[in-house]
Every structure is written in C-alpha cells, then in structure tokens.
C-alpha cells in the first residue's frame, strides 16, 4: 500500500469506512491484534506481551471534503464543508460524490456572464455540483442529503520524484508512517490508532486515548508549510525539504519535553533532518489525549496548500520522517 493509494482513497469526517477498510487490508504481518470501536477508530497492536511503556501512535483516517445538503430543481447538488474548506478554492474543481465515487464537477458562472459578480468572493450559497442528473428527484436518488463529496486529484510526483501533489496528505502521510511503524518488531507494546473525525473536532482520538490508556502517545500529522510567496516571515511554521516538523507548542497542546527531546535524539541517531514547527497556532489529535495525563508529542510533515484539492509535499521529508520514526522506535527504551 503506497502513499498514492492512501491519498486517492476517499473518506470525509464520519464517512471513513472506505479508508478504514483499505488500511485494515494493508496492516503488515506481525500485527497481533486488530479491532475497531464504537466511533469507528481502527486499532492495531504488536508486542503486547513485551514489558515497557505502552506506546500509541495516532494518525487520522478522515480528510476534509464536502457534504450534499440539498438539490436544485434542475438536478444540481448544493454543498457545505465537512471540515475546514474555504469556498474560494472550490469553483471549477473536479470531485467525486458518494461511496461509489460518481464523477462530478463544481460549476462556476461563465467568465463572460459573471460581470460585476466577479468583484465579490464566491461563497457556499453560490456553489453547486453537477453529477449529470436531470431534475430534483433524479439528483436526490443519485446523491441523497448527507452523501460525502471528496476532491478528485490523482497522486502525481514532480521534480524527479522529490515532490508529490495529491489531495488528503492530511493525514494519509500519518497513516502511511503508522503502517511503516507496524512493520518492525519492538521491545515494548506498540499500539496504533487510526482515528476518525479529526477534522471536525478530534473526536476519534478522545475515545482512542481512553481505550488504549498509553504511557506515551505520538501523533503523526501533516502541517502547513509557509515557504510560499507573501507569507510574512513571522508566520512561517515549516519549510519543505527541511525534514519532519516537531511541535514545541500549538493552540491546544504543550508536548512533553523529554518525549520531544527523544525525537530530537532519534533525528541525530538516524541522521534524518528535522525542524521545529515554528508556530503557536493549529492543533491535532494530541490535544484530545493531553487531558488524560498522557505524555504526548507530535511529528508532522510540512505540506503546502493543506485543506485544498491539491497539496504539495516533499518526498525527501517523508523518507526522513520514516528514518527518524524508525530510530525512535528502536531506541525508545533508552532515550525515554
């Protein structure tokens, strides 16, 4: 299972079943226990009989997308965001609708006819999806209210394989790292939670923390890269190509100091580049575990254009993250 398949899989908050099934299929040999819970989190574990700290890795299955909220007389779909999606990025984009992935497009008025409307930003009330249905009833049958809509961007590599463009790097890169982590034997119990509904309030992770009750939890995520034009220097959180980003603090969590130092040490051991995430904003599943008195930390892959139809990330950063994570798991009992 490559990053391509993971990114092209489709699952909005609460509609993670296709991604969950794919990940379950892709769990490596050596996994001793697989389960799901009442909210839809998928758990995998190995080394259950080993002594030592219970370590939990988390990555979320869901991606931001849209939801069908209504239908027009002509048979077009009305939409609202599922997770944070800026309406400004939607016009003219290809999408897939429903579990079966019906092809659709988000329309926009012809530039010739929009006139003074072009002086105002487009909002959700002016957006529609065409799935080729004629009339309200046909549209309602083909795509009932509540149906998920995802972006439809094939995974593409650029710059001789150093960079990749796709939807949903947030958080399929984390899922990818978790699957890699499960490939290796550990000398402590390793649990992985593939969580649901991160994008609408970290809801799966809350349950996962209480179910696993880990001693140490590490969230594997995607984070915004700020190395793009006009970004004021003071808000550049991360840069592509400088390795995975380690969190010092964000809007909702202060990661455990010794835990983060152990990741720094793993970076040194593996000669993998890494960077601090230089921002106090944002947040991730770590916040849902923090109140449970768990030692939490987060490592994130820098991505440009998060929450848009097409994000761009460095594959060099991804391989650095794999090396760093591998070294951390190998040396965890010494460094913690």
């Amino acid at each position: 299972m490559g990053l391509k398949e993971l990114c092209e899989a489709r699952g909005t908050p609460g509609r993670e079943e296709l991604v969950r099934a794919m990940v379950k299929e892709a769990l490596p040999q050596g996994v001793e226990q697989v389960s799901t819970d009442a909210v839809g989190n998928l758990y995998a574990a190995r080394g259950l009989k080993k002594p030592g700290p219970r370590v939990l890795l988390l990555a979320h299955l869901d991606e931001v997308g849209l939801m069908v909220v209504g239908h027009t007389d002509e048979g077009y779909l009305r939409i609202r965001p599922a997770g944070g999606v800026d309406a400004a990025i939607l016009p003219g984009k290809p999408v897939r609708v429903g579990r079966d992935g019906k092809e659709g497009t988000i329309g926009i008025a012809p530039a010739h006819l929009s006139g003074k409307d072009r002086k105002v930003p487009i909002g959700y009330e002016g957006l529609f999806v065409d799935i080729g249905m004629h009339g309200r009833e046909a549209a309602r049958t083909a795509a009932p209210v509540g149906e998920m809509i995802t972006f439809d961007t094939p995974y593409t590599e650029s710059w001789d394989g150093h960079a990749a463009i796709a939807k949903a790097f947030d958080d399929r890169v984390g899922v990818h790292l978790c699957l890699r982590a499960l490939e290796h034997e550990t000398d402590f119990p390793l649990h992985v939670a593939f969580t649901v509904q991160e994008e609408v309030g970290l809801r799966g992770a809350r349950v996962a923390g209480r179910r696993i009750r880990p001693d140490v939890a590490l969230v594997l995520e995607a984070t915004a890269a700020g190395d793009t034009p006009e970004t004021p220097p003071g808000v550049v959180r991360t840069r592509l190509g400088e390795g995975p980003a380690l969190t010092v603090i964000d809007r909702s969590t202060i990661p455990d100091g010794p835990l983060m130092q152990s990741l720094v040490r793993a970076g040194e051991l593996s000669h993998a580049p890494w960077q601090w995430r230089r921002s106090v904003g944002g947040g991730n599943d770590a916040a849902a575990l923090w109140p449970e008195s768990v030692r939490v930390g987060a490592m994130s892959l820098p991505c440009r254009y998060l929450h848009s139809p097409a994000s761009l990330m460095s594959l060099d950063d991804l391989s650095a993250a794999e090396r760093l994570l591998g070294a951390w798991l190998q040396s965890l009992r010494e460094v913690l």
Binding site: I89, P91, K93, I108, S114, R118, I165
Partner: peptide, 11 residues
C-alpha cells in the same frame, strides 16, 4: 478570459 476565482487549489 478566465474567472480567476476558479484558480486557487487547481492542478
């Protein structure tokens, strides 16, 4: 001849 509002996030 293109409404630039359709461009952000496009491949």
């Amino acid at each position: 001849a293109i409404d630039v509002r359709c461009l952000p996030g496009l491949t």
